[in-house]
Design a protein around this nucleic acid. Structure first.
Lengths: 199, 199
DNA sequence: GACAAAAACGAACGTTCGTACTATTTTGTC
DNA sequence: GACAAAATAGTACGAACGTTCGTTTTTGTC
């Protein structure tokens, strides 16, 4: 339990705001609606952030924390190398299946929402996505350096492909209600990685 | 030139609206902003559609026409089978590169924007995406039936993977400004298809 | 060129948006 | 329990939203 009440309230606002934004988008996320759903006044909520843009930034940060907690950290328990790389992939697909964000992957949605709107929010999202792809590349490089996969593999290329499969799975699962989407992605990931496997 | 003036105006509104929506989203597309950019009155523009939702639906339809015209039809000139399948893939990636929609692929953005919002707009987008994936599957089936690729291929699986690569390319190219994104996608598509090729 | 129909306009509606203030309540500390 | 500080509420604002309606302009037909 945090020391001050303000910080506690702020966190619970953000948890709810992340869920709402994953459904309605960061633009569709509105201070009035958020305050109403939380049973507090617009101005009281507003005071925690000072502007809509600051709220959006805080929401993006909170979503990133949830993302790391739910996808990345669990996978770090797997031993570095091939296993961990595979654990990250499985973790990603299970994260969609578990419905960590009610509207599907927050960052896939935010990426497409903001890719054409210059500003701080866009820059933050881009930075986080760069971090994510970078982390994926690092996991690939580790697997390569441990001698688990073909040394000729291009980490950036493979990270691109894996991430594409994740986004594609999220799309098919959430928009098309394709129940097999996650299995399809899993199958594609496995056959791609198995083909690179060594030893 | 169309017979009636109304229809001409409607079309030019929609062409502009599609561009605007690809940048700001279908929700961010606003009647006032659109009217201002076109130098006409809000009410005059509004009268063409009767409601915001009808405008959104018309915009989605107009975007679909552009999509088919720019991606699909050109690829139909290639002979059916492996060549046409590859032509569709190339066409898709070049469509992103040519900037057919200023904010990146309209349907990738619309899919992620509306996947959590029930309603007619969402249903329409979903139907169009089903059509698109269906068309991709058909092209794959043709290539298979012509004996150009491995007869054991699962069209739905391969269509899923190709589409994922397209969306992934759009994401990396537009949000991350990864200039190599399209080449990466091209490379992934080619190696996936070449591995299936026969004869 | 007359004239009905179609298209575009201008002004206003009620609502909601983000934001700014001031007052009130709640909190943590001594 | 007093008391300053922090948190929340209340009210109001100008702007923008989608929408309605009556008027004016433009169009196509005879």
């Amino acid at each position: 339990m945090l020391a001050v009440k303000g910080e506690r309230t702020r966190q619970s606002i953000l948890e709810h705001a992340v869920d709402l934004a994953s459904l309605e988008g960061l633009q569709g996320l509105t201070i009035g609606k958020l305050a109403e759903q939380l049973g507090m006044s617009k101005s009281g909520l507003f005071a925690h952030f000072g502007s809509k843009e600051e709220l959006q930034l805080a929401v993006v940060e909170a979503a990133a924390e949830r993302y790391i907690r739910e996808i990345f950290n669990p996978a770090l328990e797997a031993p570095r190398g091939y296993e961990r790389l595979m654990a990250i992939c499985r973790s990603w697909l299970s994260y969609v299946h578990r419905g960590v964000f009610p509207g599907g992957c927050f960052f896939a949605a935010a990426s497409f929402e903001f890719d054409g709107r210059p500003g701080v929010v866009r820059d933050t999202i881009r930075g986080l996505m760069d971090d994510w792809i970078g982390a994926l590349e690092r996991a690939i490089r580790m697997a390569r350096d441990e001698g688990h996969i073909d040394p000729g593999v291009d980490p950036a290329q493979l990270a691109f492909e894996l991430n594409a499969l994740f986004f594609g799975a999220n799309f098919a699962y959430h928009l098309r209600h394709d129940e097999q989407a996650l299995e399809r992605a899993q199958r594609a990931v496995e056959s791609r990685l198995e083909a690179l496997r060594m030893g």
